[in-house]
């Protein structure tokens, strides 16, 4: 493997972690939106994501920086053509984060309602727009060059809508799965989130399968990749999804976290596996996009040293978060 390939893998690991960690925080917002009068659920969600969401969010910045450093023409092409959905996602990120802390810091009911609603709605919209971006790239609608693609149809198309819906679904599914165990440790009844996890699991599974038909019509190259080279990842994802359903039925809440994570990871890796070595389909490869070798090597060294600093710290944070006493008041 050369430096560009390693950096590509590192970037995708970052994106996977963003989906698994940051995605679940968005999913928490989705369930906050749908919690209705079950304010107990809102408290549990706040308890679960409060200490970690900022750290989880940094994975997105990590991906952006690695992309513009390692593969600058790809970054420029994606950001300029997909200017609209990415601006909307950025605004969603502002609302999600600030409204979350504002709600925590405010005392009056109407303020908590207002900030809570902003937090919850932006938690749905942000992953949706990020999903449309993924669909736009995967279906080959982002050509290299500055704003070279169509500003609207690049992300308003079947594959992008599929990507958006799938992203929201995956976030909600992960959050529901994680919250089952959180509820148990908080001394609450996990039945509500178990029901939600099973329901979303089935819905996301059906959507994912139906989506394959969408891809066949709208993104045939991606479809071919997913049904050939990336087929093991697709099969693994389906298998892990079914296993997760079984574990949820069996109330094995800790183990189901593992299988749900593996299911989502398999989906995340199926995409690049299907289109490698192309970064911007149909033909722009990572080799054409890669930065100079000096940059790639220095970036890898920086990230390696960074990982030595960051990963133990994350482990400590997650350990503390798990042990934090739940304040039901």
């Amino acid at each position: 493997m050369d430096a560009a390939q390693i950096l590509l893998v590192v970037m995708w690991v970052g994106l996977t972690l963003y989906a698994l960690l940051g995605g679940a925080d968005f999913g928490g917002g989705v369930w906050d939106l749908l919690a209705g009068r079950e304010h107990q659920n809102r408290k549990l969600i706040e308890h679960a994501i409060g200490p970690v969401w900022e750290a989880n969010h940094v994975w997105l910045i990590f991906v952006l920086v690695v992309l513009w450093t390692g593969f600058p023409p790809v970054f420029a092409a994606i950001m300029s053509t997909l200017y609209i959905p990415l601006t909307l996602a950025a605004l969603g990120i502002i609302f999600r984060g600030s409204a979350f802390v504002f709600r925590k810091a405010s005392t009056e009911w109407w303020q908590q309602r207002l900030f809570g609603a902003s937090f919850a709605i932006s938690s749905v919209l942000t992953p949706f727009f990020l999903g449309t971006v993924a669909g736009a790239i995967a279906s080959g609608r982002v050509p290299p060059g500055l704003a070279a693609g169509n500003l609207l149809s690049s992300w308003v198309n079947p594959t992008s809508m599929y990507g958006g819906v799938l992203a929201v679904g995956v976030c909600a599914y992960l959050a529901a799965v994680y919250l089952c165990d959180d509820a148990v440790r908080a001394g609450l009844d996990p039945a509500g989130f178990r029901r939600r996890a099973i329901g979303t699991g089935i819905v996301v599974g059906v959507v994912a399968l139906a989506g394959i038909a969408v891809l066949r019509l709208d993104a045939p190259a991606l479809f071919a990749g997913l049904t050939h080279r990336a087929l093991p990842a697709v099969v693994a994802s389906a298998a892990m999804g079914i296993a997760s359903l079984g574990l949820l039925l069996a109330r094995a809440y800790l183990l189901v976290r593992v299988t749900a994570i593996l299911a989502v990871t398999a989906v995340m890796w199926g995409w690049p596996l299907a289109q490698y070595p192309v970064m911007l389909p149909p033909a722009f490869t990572y080799r054409q996009a890669a930065a100079g070798p000096e940059v790639l090597v220095v970036t890898l060294i920086v990230l390696g040293v960074g990982a030595l600093l960051v990963l133990p710290a994350i482990a400590w944070l997650l350990a503390i978060q798990r042990r934090l006493p739940y304040d039901s008041g």
Binding site: F62, V65, A291, G306, L309, V310, A313, I314
Partner: peptide, 19 residues
């Protein structure tokens, strides 16, 4: 890109330890 990558690491440290 390199100073931004370093900044990303620093931002991680800030966010984690602030939590």
């Amino acid at each position: 890109g390199v100073p931004f990558a370093m900044e990303g690491v620093a931002f991680f440290i800030e966010a984690i330890f602030l939590g």
